[in-house]
């Protein structure tokens, strides 16, 4: 990485076809970087990312774009195009990549919007949507090209419990109905454990635990225990490294 910090070292993850795989970990462990590696937005200094038999780092721009056409991604904030309305946002990949007649585009877009429950919001602009609605529109856009792999970056961040439940069910039902491979990066352990087939917990640049929800719950590692149970203290410290508290309060240097 540019800052010279090593994000991953010795990371080894295998994601099964057709399953919902959760990738969890404390904030700042590079979960989003992992997604960028899978989609070829960044390259790794060492090691390999293989998607469906292709080493992502070895593909040229054209091949990466061809690979990305088989992927869909849901961004943390939706990343809808603000100058297009909901309908055109969902239609965007179809218009860019296909020459389908307008009638067919209309049918596909309305079907996908119906799947996320927002057929009635087709004429709204992204600014008029709530966070949860925006996320669902982005989801409709992500599935409009019928991808084989669907990647979710923090799909639950900032959502109210109802929207969260809706998105959660959508992830599972889309996965099963369309037979896609879902990769969900999140730190909402409780939510994702309801739907994930397989989970990986990443900390300090490598996988510290992996398995099904039940296996993780009984995992002996203290860091997994801390993460799954949401404890403030444990192997991942609550405090950022600092000088001794009393020394700093009693007039010593401000910074360690």
């Amino acid at each position: 990485m540019d800052s010279g910090k090593i994000v991953f070292s010795g990371l080894d993850i295998e994601i099964g076809r057709g399953a919902v795989t959760a990738i969890m970990g404390p904030s700042g462990t590079g979960k989003t970087t992992l997604l960028k590696l899978i989609t070829g937005q960044v390259g790794a200094d060492r090691g390999q990312v293989v998607v469906d038999g292709h080493d992502v780092a070895r593909l040229n721009r054209k091949q990466i774009y061809a690979l990305r056409r088989r992927m869909g991604m849901l961004f943390q904030n939706g990343a809808l195009l603000t100058d297009l309305d909901v309908f055109e946002n969902v239609a965007f990949p179809l218009r860019e990549h296909t020459r389908l007649p307008e009638r067919l585009i209309r049918t596909i877009v309305l079907t996908k919007l119906h799947a996320v429950g927002l057929r009635g919001a087709a004429s709204l602009y992204p600014q008029q949507l709530s966070g949860g609605m925006g996320r669902r529109v982005a989801l409709a856009r992500a599935i409009v090209m019928d991808p084989e792999i669907l990647i979710y970056d923090e799909p639950f961040a900032g959502l109210d419990p109802i929207s969260m439940g809706v998105v959660l069910r959508l992830i599972r039902s889309l996965n099963d109905a369309l037979g896609i491979t879902s990769i969900v990066v999140t730190h909402d352990v409780r939510e994702i454990s309801q739907i994930a087939d397989m989970s990986f917990i990443i900390a300090e640049g490598k996988v510290v635990a992996s398995g099904t929800t039940a296996e993780l719950r009984d995992h002996p590692s203290p860091i997994v225990h801390q993460f799954v149970d949401g404890l403030a203290d444990g192997p991942v410290p609550f405090h950022y490294p600092a000088a001794e508290y009393h020394e700093q309060l009693l007039g010593g240097k401000v910074f360690a």
Partner: peptide
Amino acid sequence: TDQIAAMEIMAV
């Protein structure tokens, strides 16, 4: 707001 990144992911 990740709109550029979203386009790249959509192979645009």
